[in-house]
Amino acid sequence: MMLKALFIVVLAVALVTVSAIQAAPRLVMPETTFNFGYVPQNSKISHVFWLYSKGDDSVQILKVVPG
């Protein structure tokens, strides 16, 4: 009986550990490029790209490097 309970506890811990290892953030961007075409000089233009978090864990944006 004791052995059975221990087995269940070990199994539960193992399952939790495996699911924690598997939990991963996943960033999905349906659109990654945008062409503005012709634009005048001395103007500010803008476009919104949508970012979706589709993983098991939250996506954290650590840094955006202008390119």
């Binding site: 961007m29 945008f34 062409n35 012709y38 634009v39 005048p40 476009h47 390119g67």
Partner: peptide
């Protein structure tokens, strides 16, 4: 990941 914008400044 990256995004890219293109344009032609006139």
């Amino acid at each position: 990941k990256y995004v890219q914008i293109d344009c032609e400044v006139v």
